[in-house]
Write a protein that binds this DNA or RNA. Structure first.
Length: 425
RNA sequence: GGAGAGGUGGCUGAGUGGUCGAAAGCGAACGACUCGAAAUCGUUUAAUAGAUAACUAUUCGUGGGUUCGAAUCCCACCCUCUCCGCCA
C-alpha cells in the first residue's frame, strides 16, 4: 500500500516512481479524491468540535438546574440536532470517498527500488552471476521421464483424484520430497531462523495484507462457504502472523522459516509446463521471511538471498542469480533477486527461488510497526523461497542422472534421504 | 451443530447515558537513592489522521442505529472461551 499523504501531496513523484514498471499510471483521479477527502475531514472535524462543546454545555445545564424541560434546554438540544444532521451528511460523503480511495490505492503496486534494473519485461532482467558446472552429456532425460522410469510420481492417476497439474509422489519420490523439506528446515533453523508451520487456509484480510488481493483474486483457490483461501505461499500467513502489531525494536529482525503447501490456480498458463513438477496447482515450499528495521532491509535482502543460495550450493545444483527488472517485479516487491536452477534437459534456467524486499508496502497494508526514537514506523518485510521443493527435486533428478538410468543424490542430502542413489527397483 | 459467557490501552482488569481516551495493577522508560545492582520512592507510558507551538478529530471486536451526548442502550455480523454432541 502506498502512502495516501504522498499521493495527495506529491502525485507526480508517485506517478514517476510507478511508471518505472514500464506502464503508465495515472493517479490524478486518486489525488483528486484524497484532496477532496481532506477538505471534508477538516469540515467534519470542525463540526464535531462545535457539537461536542454544545453537548458538554447541555450536560452542565442539566446538572445545574432542576428543570429538565426548560425552554433553554430544548433550544440547545435543537441546535445539537442540527449539528448531528449536518455531520451525518458529511460522514456519508467521507465513507464513500474512503472506500473509493482505498479501492484504488490497494490496486497500486509498490515502487521499484532505484537500484533495480530498468526494463519492460523478463527479457530485461540482469544476470548477476552463475554458480556450478553444467551437466554436459548426450541423451539427457527430462525429470518427468526419469520420474516415470523410476516410478517417483504419477500425474495421470492424480487427474483422477483432482485434475491436471496435480501430482502424487510415490516411494522414493515421496521420500525425496520429505528429505528435501527436512534438509532445508534444518539448515535454516541452524542459521538463526525460527521455524513455523502456519495455517494453509488464510482469510481475505491476510491475502490483502501481503498484496495478493484485491488485484489477483483469480490466482488463488477460494473456499466457497467461508472467507478462506488456500494459501498461494507462506508469505501470506507469515505476514499476517504479526498483523496489527507494534514489534519491539529490540526483537528485530524477526527471521522465520516456514514449510507450507502452496496452492495456485495458474490461470492463463494453459499449455505451459504441462509435464513434470515445474508448474503444479499444489506444491511444497520452504519459505524464509524477515521483519526488519526500516533502515536495514537492504542488507537483509542480501542475506536472505544468500541464505536461499546456500541450499543450492549444498545440493551442488548449478544456478544463476538474476536481478529482476522494474517491469517484471511482483506487485508488492521493490526489488527481487531470482535464483534460477539449471535444468539440463531443457538447457535453460528455471526459477526456483524469488527473494524480494517489499520495504514497508506489506507492513502498511498489514499494519506492522516498530517504535524508533519514540515514533512508530512501519517495518520492512522480505521474503524468499529456500526453496521450492518440487522444482528442487526436478533439478536433482536432471542434474544427478547417470548413464545407467539411476540418479545420484547430492552428498548433503544423503543423510536425509538414506542412500546415495535412486535406482530402478 | 446445540446451550451459555465474553470481546476495553503492551498485558491484567474496573467502568451501564454527561469533562471517560478510560480507574487500579503489572510491564516498560527516565530520574532519585546506591560504588554498582536489587528493593523502594517519584515522573512518564495507546493508536491513527490533520495542523505542528501548544491543538483538533477519530478509535473501547466490526458495521449500522437511538440520543444534544454512547465503552455504556438497540440491531446485525465477526471472533474467543466453557459445556454438550461429533470427530483426526
Amino acid at each position: 500500500m502506498l502512502d495516501q499523504k504522498l499521493i495527495r501531496e506529491n502525485p507526480t513523484i508517485v506517478e514517476k516512481n510507478l511508471s518505472l514498471r514500464g506502464k503508465v499510471y495515472n493517479i490524478s483521479d486518486i489525488n483528486e479524491l484524497t484532496v477532496k477527502k481532506k477538505e471534508i475531514d477538516i469540515e467534519v472535524s470542525n463540526l464535531q468540535f462545535e457539537s461536542k462543546k454544545l453537548s458538554k454545555l447541555i450536560g452542565q445545564e442539566i446538572n445545574n438546574s432542576q428543570n429538565k424541560t426548560s425552554q433553554k434546554l430544548n433550544d440547545l438540544k435543537k441546535r445539537g440536532n442540527e449539528y448531528r444532521i449536518k455531520i451525518s451528511e458529511f460522514e456519508e460523503k467521507q465513507r464513500i470517498l474512503d472506500k473509493q480511495i482505498y479501492d484504488k490505492i490497494s490496486n497500486l503496486p509498490n515502487f521499484p527500488s532505484i537500484d533495480a534494473p530498468i526494463g519492460k519485461d523478463e527479457s530485461n532482467n540482469v544476470q548477476v552471476k552463475t554458480w556450478g558446472d553444467h551437466l554436459k552429456k548426450d541423451n539427457l532425460n527430462s525429470h518427468w521421464e526419469i520420474g516415470e522410469s523410476l516410478n517417483l510420481f504419477d500425474s495421470t492417476k492424480s487427474t483422477k483424484i483432482s485434475k491436471s497439474r496435480f501430482i502424487t509422489l510415490i516411494g522414493n519420490g515421496a521420500r525425496l520430497e520429505r528429505a528435501l523439506i527436512n534438509f532445508m528446515l534444518d539448515i535454516h533453523t541452524q542459521n538463526g531462523y525460527l521455524e513455523l508451520i502456519p495455517p494453509a487456509l488464510v482469510n481475505s484480510e491476510s491475502l490483502t495484507g501481503s498484496g495478493q488481493l484485491p488485484k489477483f483474486s483469480n490466482e488463488s483457490f477460494k473456499c466457497s462457504n467461508d472467507d478462506l483461501w488456500l494459501s498461494p505461499t507462506a508469505e501470506v500467513p507469515l505476514t499476517a502472523f504479526h498483523k496489527n502489531e507494534i514489534i519491539d525494536s529490540k526483537h528485530l529482525p524477526l527471521k522465520y522459516v516456514a514449510y507450507s503447501p502452496c496452492f495456485r490456480r495458474e490461470a492463463g498458463s494453459y499449455g505451459r509446463d504441462t509435464k513434470g513438477l515445474i508448474r503444479l496447482h499444489q506444491f511444497n515450499k520452504v519459505e524464509l521471511y524477515w521483519f526488519t528495521d526500516p533502515n536495514k532491509s537492504i542488507e537483509a535482502h542480501q542475506k536472505i538471498t544468500s541464505d536461499a543460495e546456500s541450499i543450492l550450493k549444498k545440493l551442488n545444483l548449478p544456478y544463476r542469480l538474476v536481478d529482476i527488472c522494474t517491469g517484471d517485479l511482483g506487485f508488492s516487491s521493490s526489488r527481487t533477486f531470482d535464483l534460477e536452477v539449471w535444468l539440463p534437459s531443457s538447457k535453460c534456467y528455471r526459477e526456483i527461488s524469488s527473494c524480494s524486499n517489499c520495504l514497508e508496502f506489506q507492513a502498511r497494508r498489514s499494519s506492522i510497526r516498530t517504535k524508533i526514537d519514540k515514533k512508530n514506523q512501519f517495518v520492512h518485510t522480505l521474503n524468499g523461497s529456500a526453496l521450492a521443493i518440487g522444482r528442487t527435486m526436478a533439478a536433482i533428478l536432471e542434474n544427478g542422472q547417470q548413464s545407467d538410468g539411476s540418479v545420484k543424490i547430492p552428498d548433503a542430502l544423503v543423510p536425509y534421504f538414506g542412500s546415495n542413489f535412486i535406482k530402478t527397483a
